[in-house]
């Protein structure tokens, strides 16, 4: 039984990794589509995030069934209960990515092709990477990587503050179309929320390994 159970726990890690990869792809896609303009990239990103709904349900069902059949304790219990928490964070990340895609669709329909600030592109890559690494830390039971993700949160927060200042200044000096700058600030805020969820996931990964809640 132990062998079967171990294989299923491994499988659970794969399922979460696949969902995190999808989230990261959606984030990358939506940010790169911003500067390209057009609707294609944003639509593809929305499709990716809606495919995460099914992944969420599958993972939840898998967890429920393992709880019922294996009646896990100790580290096994943590592995499954944290999966249930993390899948919710992943789902929220998908929602935020979809929100960004919606904004970028609106921009595209206005025929806008905004110049994406370098910092926003960095934030986006950073956030996507944090999501992937947080889940990898869980799947590999790797506390060090999880801690690194937790510490990256400050970097993203700083980027957000800086970006907000830059964009507010642009609005003040009327260097930019006000509506567009506000949209970019909102997008940055969503990315910052994504990073927060990645940090939640990393904290769950730490709990899974150590049994200590941060």
């Amino acid at each position: 039984m132990r062998k079967t159970f171990d294989a299923e726990l491994l499988e659970l890690g794969h399922e979460l990794t696949a969902m995190a990869d999808t989230a990261q792809d959606a984030i990358d896609l939506v940010t790169s589509s911003l500067s390209k303009g057009g609707e294609e990239g944003a639509k593809a990103a929305i499709e990716l995030t809606s495919s995460m709904d099914q992944m969420e349900r599958d993972i939840e069902n898998h967890c429920m069934s393992l709880l019922m059949r294996q009646q896990p304790v100790a580290r096994d219990l943590r592995t499954i209960s944290t999966a249930l928490k993390m899948v919710t964070d992943l789902q929220r990340i998908g929602d935020q990515a979809a929100n960004i895609a919606e904004i970028s669709l609106l921009m595209a329909s206005d025929g806008e092709k905004p110049e994406v600030p370098e910092d926003l592109a960095i934030m986006s890559r950073q956030a996507g990477l944090m999501v992937r690494q947080a889940i990898a830390a869980y799947a590999d039971r790797d506390e060090t990587t999880a801690l690194a993700v937790v510490n990256l949160d400050d970097v993203v927060d700083e980027l957000f503050v800086k970006l907000k200042q830059d964009l507010t200044e642009r609005i003040a000096h009327q260097e930019d179309h006000t509506g567009r700058a506000v949209d970019l600030i909102i997008i940055a805020k969503y990315l910052e929320r994504i990073a927060d969820h990645a940090v939640n996931i990393a904290n769950w990964a730490i709990f899974c390994v150590t049994g200590q809640l941060q």
Binding site: R2, P72, V73, A74, R75, D76, L77, R78, G211, Q212
Partner: peptide, 13 residues
Amino acid sequence: SVPKDKRTEDYIT
């Protein structure tokens, strides 16, 4: 939930 000794963890799981 968090056994201290690895032997305990191995046994209960």
